[in-house]
Amino acid sequence: MVQAPNRSQTLTPFHQQLNHPLQKQPISVLQINLGKRCNLACHHCHVEAGPKRTEEISRDIWQDLVTLIEQFPQLQTVDLTGGAPEMHAGFKPLVEAARRTQKEVIVRSNLTIYFVPGYEDLPEYFAANRLRVVASLPCYLADNVDKMRGNGVFDESIRALQWLNQLGYGRDPELTLDLVYNPPMPGSEDEFRLPPAQAGLEAAYKAHLGGQFGIEFNHLLTITNLPIGRTKQFLQRRHLQQAYTKFLEENFNRATLEGVMCRNQLSVDYLGNIYDCDFNQMEGVAAQSAAGDPLTVRHLLEAGSLDVIEQIQTRDYCYGCTAGCGSSCGGSLIEE
């Protein structure tokens, strides 16, 4: 008889799982969080974004980021997120600077923003600039999506995806449309889940969305819920945070370490501060120079280098990125 895991055991600190500290590799991805304003307030949002948030990137910061994008040809990808990144100052100037320098641009879109007055031009703008759209759709069933993201979100998301398809997204090789899956939020320890195998779930999404709505997309990205932001608050209210983090530790997979996104990525907040990843940004864990100093965009410009970080800052929620098949902004890290 197999016994259930004893999650009363003390958590092993993540850094003790490593044979040596995680080292930064040459930077090729710049992820920018433009602010926390969003037209939605999703239950699983680690950014804690919403309509009442006012934090937004300043003109000085986004202009410095335009300079950074233009100055460093080693950058291959500019990844724009929020909040709803499209709602924030600097969004289009950053897009256009990246496209001028032939970099891939990812926009992490909630899809429903296209129906908010003043933003109806976004799908056509995305297509004209060949942006890669990465859109949250945590399930292909309406009830599950609306429970996580708000009433009516599923129907608007379907309309938005159909709109993108009409413009060529998911069909034209230059117009990539990816969807993002997150597991449901657990109400008890029995409901702790890692994302299922990405390839199999992608096939199920394509079959259902194609059959029911005629929707086509390129890839499904599976992302584990990390115990930070609203997910942490949800778990704390149910006295599940410690047990959930222990569950992630129990599923730690050393094979994921080589591919974790913090290796080759810089994450920038709306104030211009630098982090190793978006999750550290939300927890206020700043990236550090070799001398141990926190970094800003201005520091990178003055140094004339993106590669000033030697050691990645880790915390216990890093178990979320390294559990099972791994998790990143680009989906799973290894095949099951």
Rank of each mutant, 00 (worst) to 15 (best):
Q3N: 11
A4M: 08
S8L: 10
Q9F: 06
T10S: 12
T12G: 01
P13L: 02
K24P: 05
Q25V: 01
V29E: 03
Q31H: 02
Q31N: 09
A41H: 11
H44Q: 13
C45P: 06
C45G: 05
V47I: 14
A49E: 03
P51M: 05
K52A: 10
K52D: 11
T54E: 13
E56C: 12
R59Q: 15
R59I: 04
I61E: 07
I61W: 04
W62Y: 15
Q63N: 08
D64I: 00
T67Q: 14
Q71I: 00
P73Y: 03
P73H: 04
T81I: 12
A84E: 15
G90P: 09
F91R: 07
A97N: 09
R100K: 15
Q102S: 13
I106L: 14
R108P: 05
L111V: 00
L111M: 12
I113R: 04
G118E: 02
L122D: 04
P123Y: 02
P123D: 02
Y125I: 01
A127M: 06
R130F: 04
R132D: 00
V133I: 15
V133P: 12
A135Q: 05
L141F: 11
D143K: 14
R149K: 12
G152H: 08
G152C: 07
E156L: 15
I158E: 02
I158L: 05
W163F: 14
W163A: 04
L164A: 07
R171D: 06
E174A: 14
L175H: 09
L179R: 11
V180Q: 12
Y181R: 04
M185E: 13
S188R: 12
D190V: 00
E191S: 11
F192M: 06
L201K: 13
L201C: 07
Y205Q: 11
K206V: 03
A207T: 10
G211R: 09
Q212N: 06
L221T: 00
L221V: 00
T224V: 11
T224Q: 12
R230V: 01
Q233H: 12
F234R: 10
H239D: 15
Y244R: 05
K246L: 11
E250S: 12
F252N: 06
A255N: 13
L257N: 07
V260P: 03
M261W: 10
N264P: 00
D276V: 01
F279N: 03
N280R: 13
G284V: 01
Q288H: 13
S289H: 04
A291T: 12
P294I: 01
T296F: 05
E302C: 01
T314S: 11
D316P: 07
C325Q: 15
C325Y: 13
S327K: 04
G331W: 10
